[in-house]
Design a protein around this nucleic acid. Sequence first.
DNA 1: CACAAGAGTGCGTTATGTGAACAATAGCAC
DNA 2: GTGCTATTGTTCACATAACGCACTCTTGTG
Lengths: 292, 292
Amino acid sequence: MAKEVVEKDEASVDVLPPRNPARTGLMTASPDWSDDENGGLNPRDYVSSLARGLEVLRAFNRTRRKMTLSEVAAETGNTRAGARRILLTLVHEGYAVADGKLFDLTPQVLELGYSVLSSKGAWDIARPFIDHLSSELRESVSAAVLDRFDVVYVSGAQYHRVISVGITVGARFPAHCTATGRVLLAAQAPEMWPGMLQHIPLTRMTEHTVTDPTEFRRVLEQVRDQGWSLVDQELETGLMSIAVPLHNPSGGLVGAINVGIPTVRMSAATAIEYVLPKLQETVLNIRESLKR
Amino acid sequence: MAKEVVEKDEASVDVLPPRNPARTGLMTASPDWSDDENGGLNPRDYVSSLARGLEVLRAFNRTRRKMTLSEVAAETGNTRAGARRILLTLVHEGYAVADGKLFDLTPQVLELGYSVLSSKGAWDIARPFIDHLSSELRESVSAAVLDRFDVVYVSGAQYHRVISVGITVGARFPAHCTATGRVLLAAQAPEMWPGMLQHIPLTRMTEHTVTDPTEFRRVLEQVRDQGWSLVDQELETGLMSIAVPLHNPSGGLVGAINVGIPTVRMSAATAIEYVLPKLQETVLNIRESLKR
DNA sequence: CACAAGAGTGCGTTATGTGAACAATAGCAC
DNA sequence: GTGCTATTGTTCACATAACGCACTCTTGTG
């Protein structure tokens, strides 16, 4: 008995979990997809209590709220005693509340990640343009950034008709099968491509998802060369999305903006003909605004 | 900025770190309005490493991104060695990246607080109604929940005219001078009122802000009795806001929804006559939807 | 009332924080 | 440029705080 099967990431219990290596001495910049996926981290440079605590917070996100101590322990691979200490700490610091035996997060946890959403103010500036594009096209528009192999939505305007494409801020999807994701992946520096292409899991999401590495590489090359991406039902059946990258005035990649369109409403050809120019115009306008 | 000596609390070597380790002490944690302000927490029940780590994450939010190790140490009241271990842990877990000597958070931190935004799906359901109200009124509409004495915005639709009221999801404002805040405070159980009224800091934000406790109590009573709140330029000059509470079908308080209106565009009387009914209708519709 | 499941506790062992020393930079005066 | 100093990043040793384990206590169920 004792320990349940923790089927998620098995590494949760002793030795250093694998992730970004960060060697001592030279610091690795930007999510490195290079091949040194070791875990070679000096034990002195690691605080496992912190990692465990963060894992508890994530557990609440996975399971969607309200768990007992034991559930948290099982979910995170902790002992009950350990989970209890962590939960009480979170309560003490105001990140969680204990309601009887059920623990729950408070809105204070937003303080932990909020800066990413409001960062640099670039998205604040982009916001009106996104809204405007949304009402003009009468479709949902959103902005996303890349986090490893996921896209994370940082802003968005939903346009609601009968069918609507709903994306919440903070949502996360695999990059390989989303238009924003492909635009962002394609915009990575050339030297990143090998590692990226080697490590990215081309998970099949629908019958249309591109899962062949060679084909995926070709797709990415095309996206890079044409400067936009259209993805037709590779993430979700019935959903088409078209995206372009957003660069700041100095040329740096800020993120990507996409329009999500239910396939019943428009063909891919129509989207390219009608939506794409407006999307491109929008990012140009945003970029212009960022100058000031 | 803030590069002073880090004198910490000298006796830090034993039991229970005080409430907020960070000297800068904005935003103290721990959600007890009641008077049990003991701090009486068994050392066994507290993981200070976790609290330190979370404090580092918050430091990034306060200062808005990119800090060196030493800056983080100073900002959080840690030693450089300790800050380093925490930062390297965050990097290892993917929450941060080290770019040369500058550390920065990644979008992965959103995973920590995301569940609050997407919780229970109540806000997902409310979302279309909020959007609809926004386009109908041609004003920005948002939804918020209470976190101690702050309101935190969890959803919103911005309507952009020349002047627009811009609120980002995750934003946080003092509850006492916002319409949503007053609605939520007023909806607290009667036995909470004394502690609440005693502890809430009635910070002056504009010349209109109600800062007198007695008057504030009267205001709150009125809000409770009438079931809505209109706040005229008490948070920000030129901004008026009107809010109503949102209850779920079983009567529990879910949050509040408000319409923000630039004062140049409408008088308070007009807002009450014209906006309030639509707002009330909207929450009724949302509540109806939540039943299913 | 017995039983099971979960919550809380004491203790030996391990991992972590601290402060100080050391190393590498960055400024800065010249 | 050279040499100086102030600042920041890194390492180390040791005191101690946090861990898991095994245990007890509480609560809810038949």
